[in-house]
């Protein structure tokens, strides 16, 4: 296997919560949860901010993670704890198609992103590489920097532990849930690929 492969899969410098990649983690009674500190962002966070283009001469997650938000929040990489949660306004991940953006976030240790809305390509990329993202109009309005928040992917529940606030994320389309549940597009396809190489029917 070529060495760049690991990057394509989202290699991480820190252990990523295994359960998130566990098939079924989004379903039924398992009640998959993560809990973390909030890193708050505004509207229209573009992919050049998430990972500046000058660092795109590599593809490996652990290399990219070093420069996650390098220009605007250099403190993030130093202080982030595995499972921390990024919370943002509208159109998160706008700009380029670089998959290095969700990859850098995930490899840096960000466990999930909650935003009012996501740019189309970023949304797709995040599912493909297995970075959980949730959409909610209200939660980003009320969640503050540094809050401790827990997320339940089976129900879409977002709970601010410190302030005892509850929100419900917009439901994830079934097809996207299946991809996330499998741990990303590659695993999903491998699991469901027919002998003829056909994608599974939608």
């Amino acid at each position: 296997m070529p060495p760049f492969f690991e990057g394509a899969q989202g290699g991480s410098i820190k252990e990523f919560p295994k359960d998130l990649l566990d098939p079924g983690c989004l379903e039924g009674n398992k009640g998959m949860k993560i809990e973390g500190r909030v890193w708050k962002f505004g509207d229209h966070v573009d992919t050049d901010l998430i990972i500046p283009a000058r660092y795109l001469n590599v593809s490996e997650g652990h290399e990219l993670a070093k420069y996650c938000f390098a220009d605007v929040r250099p403190d993030l990489v130093k202080e982030v704890q595995v499972g921390d949660i990024a919370v943002a306004g509208v159109n998160f991940g706008c700009g380029s198609s670089r998959e290095q953006a969700p990859l850098a976030l995930k490899a840096a240790g960000i466990g999930a992103v909650i935003a009012k809305s996501f740019a189309r390509i970023f949304y797709r990329n995040a599912f493909n590489i297995g970075l959980p993202i949730l959409e909610s109009e209200e939660a980003p309005e009320q969640i503050k920097e540094g809050d401790r928040v827990s997320l339940d992917f089976s129900t879409g529940a977002i709970v601010v532990i410190s302030g005892d606030k509850h929100f419900l994320a917009r439901p994830i389309p079934d097809f996207m849930r299946a991809i996330l549940r499998a741990g990303g597009l590659v695993k999903y396809l491998k699991k469901s690929q027919s002998a003829a190489g056909d994608l599974p029917a939608l």
């Binding site: 296997m1 070529p2 760049f4 492969f5 990057g7 394509a8 899969q9 795109l56 001469n57 593809s59 198609s97 670089r98 998959e99 290095q100 597009l185 590659v186 396809l189 491998k190 690929q193």
Partner: peptide
């Protein structure tokens, strides 16, 4: 910028 990762995915599949 994007081909190397895509090629990695192709091999992995």
């Amino acid at each position: 910028i994007t081909a190397p990762s895509a090629i990695g995915v192709f091999y992995d599949l």
